[in-house]
Nucleic acid binder design. Structure first.
Lengths: 283, 283
DNA sequence: ATTTATTATCACTTTAAATGATATATAAAT
DNA sequence: ATTTATATATCATTTAAAGTGATAATAAAT
């Protein structure tokens, strides 16, 4: 009973997507699923023509087993790679926020130290990343929430404070535009809250793609932004004014999570060691 | 990656036996194992010619995963059978002792009530039965030891006392032969201990195959035996003398064990319900 | 109504597993 | 030391399963 095709199809909620993922044609997936349904004598999916597949209640029961088996197979593969001394790919989860700004340094450093090890980056919400960890789809993830979950190991990595950044002083925030990053919600939300609390609702919002652009806008006096101070390089600190915010609300903790009891491959221990030796606030 | 062949081969410690169990020829097992070793690039077994196979350290690592996967597959199959309302076979473990004497009544009653449900009987030591339960190879087992293990659920089923049985009185045990069952060690050991404590070492031991024979021998005055009293039917109690032994050593508790968190199929719940309704000391 | 995205069917090809006969290797028995 | 019994390994062949590609069918979106 091979449940892999079923598992991927159920996860993708689509036979065509499963076919892509499994490097075969859709008709094969269709036939295999049909065969499985007939072997087990149960209907696994509700098919709705042009709409997404959904698991039937019976399909859900089988899925629970298929998922556990898939996880074990992934772990077995990792264990074997580890035996063979293969520097297996490391999969790292990141939140869809500018957390990446600081973490990129770690990734770059890892790549420099272990250029032969492939790095796979997955982004998602904390919940999604936790799921990915439990499914052994990623090895580690960086998150901003202090969570406590039975099968998740959490280590604090660094903590820093947010700062208001602008090219003018901070006496008056009225009539200031704000500058934020696209696809970044965490810092932006805190900046808006900060202003809203002072009854200020900026009408102009610049949404930019990169940190470099954002700092260029700020330096040019286009508006106010909020970022962890550590993103500013020394030469930029001269060009800009910044005000570190002391409240807990403006503190961010970055935590590394990984699966409790999961195999610590050489690759993974290399990565974790590198983080521990990483100097976050120097330089 | 199909680990089933590897799993069975490792468990049987033999490719030929695995071939029997998997209903295929030995050469196929040999080829599949070789293929797996080459795919994974690790040696799984130490082959020693005419001797049993042993797992290499790497083989042991893979085996741990293979076993977990095999258990999940068995459980998935059970869950599906349960969906289909199939009265799946129930596998029952019994100790290699005359425990079976009393338990046979339960099994006969179960068979009467659910004639369509297949019953598979496995015998083994307590340790072996516990292993079988954890591997989902059997659904329940009856054991005589009060064990406490994390993933095992234990319910006391009944308790009774052993009795000395003979056709004469119990004033003097000297020069008495003893009558025991073949393949039964629990009661026999206690009988021997009982006599040894009195410095009596019977030179004649009748080893019989069935309870009926044993009681016939006892009735004929051939010797002394020890059994749970409940095995005597009323009409036999008139023909024989019996002396119930009060010491804890001669008390036997029979417990039912099953896997904690395992699926309770209709078949299994039927069986457990039947036991609970079973009148052990009446009739 | 037409387009788009999806699953199902089918004749066919390719790949993998299983077979059966035989060779080889080892431990134990003689 | 030779035989015997019991293993695993190899290989040409057969059988069965998985996968392909073209096409049909279906339902939702525009």
């Amino acid at each position: 009973m091979d449940l892999k095709i079923f598992y991927i199809t159920a996860k993708e909620r689509s036979m065509s997507k499963a076919a892509d993922k499994l490097h075969c044609v859709q008709s094969n997936i269709s036939a295999r699923i049909k065969q499985l349904e007939s072997d087990l004598n149960i209907v696994l999916f509700d098919r709705g023509g042009g709409k997404k597949l959904t698991l039937t209640p019976n399909g859900k029961i089988l899925f629970q087993y298929a998922e556990k088996i898939a996880i074990l197979e992934k772990e077995a593969e990792k264990a074997i790679n580890n035996i063979n001394g293969k520097n297996s790919a490391i999969a790292i989860g990141l939140m869809e926020t500018a957390t990446a700004i600081k973490l990129h340094e770690i990734l770059i450093s890892y790549h420099k130290n272990y250029p032969e090890s492939k790095i796979k980056i997955v982004t998602g919400t904390t919940e999604e990343l936790v799921q990915n960890i439990l499914n052994s789809e990623i090895d580690v993830a960086f998150i901003q929430d202090l969570i406590e979950l039975p099968n998740i190991e959490l280590k604090p990595i660094f903590e820093e404070k947010l700062a208001l950044i602008s090219n003018t002083n901070f006496d008056n925030f009225r009539n200031k535009n704000i500058i934020v990053l696209k696809k970044e919600y965490f810092y932006r939300e805190r900046l808006e809250n900060f202003l809203n609390a002072k009854n200020i609702y900026p009408d102009k919002v610049f949404e930019l793609d990169s940190l470099e652009e954002l700092l260029a806008y700020a330096s040019a006096g286009m508006g106010l932004t909020m970022l962890p101070l550590s993103v500013l390089k020394e030469n930029q600190k001269n060009k800009l004014n910044f005000k570190i915010l002391g409240d807990d609300e403006y503190k961010i903790g970055i935590y590394l999570i990984n699966k409790k009891g999961g195999i610590i491959t050489k690759t993974l221990s290399n990565f974790i060691e590198l983080i521990h030796n990483f100097k976050f606030f120097e330089k």
